[in-house]
Simulated assay, not measured.
Amino acid sequence: MESSPEVENLEQVMDRILDAAEGHDCVNLDMILNAVGQRSYGPVLLLIGLIVLAPLIGDIPGVPTLCAIIVLLFSVQLMLHREHFWLPQWLLNRSIKTSSLNKAIDLSRKPARFVDRLVKPRLTFLIRGYIPARCVALCSIAIALMMPLMEFIPFSANLAGGVLTCFGLALIARDGFLALLAFALMIASVTLVFYGVWG
């Protein structure tokens, strides 16, 4: 199945997911990735960030860890210069009830519209090119490695979701300011995990 053209904003991601789920009792990860464009790193980061942030989904035990595995696999493959990303079939087959997905998207719709109005191309030198993309990948690997611990620290997984969402949007919209925000949120995530585990 060919992947769809790349998404350009948060609301478009939600619309693509709803389209993929239409007519199905459950929707699996493979269907969702194909809908948002699984061959591009930005849309995948954005999607995983939204899943971790989403009400009714991101708070399910085990979901942040599964999302961390996906981010880790994609990020490592980007660092290795892979042109096409790969995920194991057991991950692609993971599914969620369409009714739960619809509720989560309905709750997220207004915040998504607000964010979409703020995102635009700016400070593009911070997000375009080989080196910035690899910096994003390295930061995403660091976040992914921390996410299993975050399941035991209140609100930290949501912070990780914010980091991934900002990085994904920054790559899609060429918004360097969002990349800076993601770096700041990442520092906050590391601090929260450090004090949550060793504090």
Score class of each variant (00 low, 15 high):
3 S>Y: 09
9 N>R: 13
9 N>Q: 06
13 V>K: 11
14 M>L: 13
16 R>S: 15
18 L>G: 06
19 D>E: 15
19 D>P: 04
19 D>R: 15
20 A>T: 06
24 H>M: 15
27 V>G: 00
29 L>K: 05
30 D>Q: 15
31 M>I: 05
33 L>W: 11
38 Q>A: 12
39 R>D: 13
40 S>W: 03
40 S>A: 13
41 Y>L: 13
43 P>F: 02
43 P>H: 03
46 L>R: 13
48 I>A: 07
55 P>L: 15
58 G>C: 10
61 P>M: 05
61 P>Y: 07
62 G>D: 13
65 T>K: 07
67 C>K: 06
70 I>D: 00
70 I>Q: 02
74 F>E: 02
81 H>M: 10
85 F>H: 03
87 L>E: 00
89 Q>S: 14
90 W>G: 14
91 L>P: 08
92 L>Q: 02
92 L>E: 03
95 S>M: 10
95 S>D: 15
99 S>N: 11
101 L>G: 04
103 K>H: 09
104 A>L: 04
104 A>V: 06
105 I>Q: 09
111 P>A: 11
112 A>M: 10
112 A>F: 12
115 V>W: 11
116 D>E: 10
117 R>V: 09
118 L>G: 08
121 P>D: 04
123 L>P: 03
124 T>Y: 02
127 I>S: 03
129 G>Y: 01
129 G>E: 04
129 G>F: 01
130 Y>L: 13
131 I>G: 04
131 I>K: 10
136 V>L: 11
139 C>S: 13
139 C>R: 11
140 S>F: 12
141 I>T: 01
143 I>Y: 06
144 A>I: 05
145 L>Q: 10
146 M>H: 07
147 M>P: 11
147 M>F: 08
149 L>I: 15
152 F>T: 14
152 F>I: 14
153 I>D: 05
154 P>E: 08
156 S>Y: 02
161 G>C: 05
163 V>F: 01
163 V>A: 00
164 L>E: 00
165 T>I: 01
168 G>L: 03
169 L>E: 00
171 L>G: 02
173 A>V: 04
175 D>K: 01
177 F>M: 15
178 L>I: 01
179 A>Y: 06
184 A>N: 07
187 I>L: 12
188 A>R: 09
190 V>A: 12
193 V>R: 00
194 F>R: 13
195 Y>K: 07
195 Y>L: 12
195 Y>D: 06
196 G>R: 03
199 G>M: 05
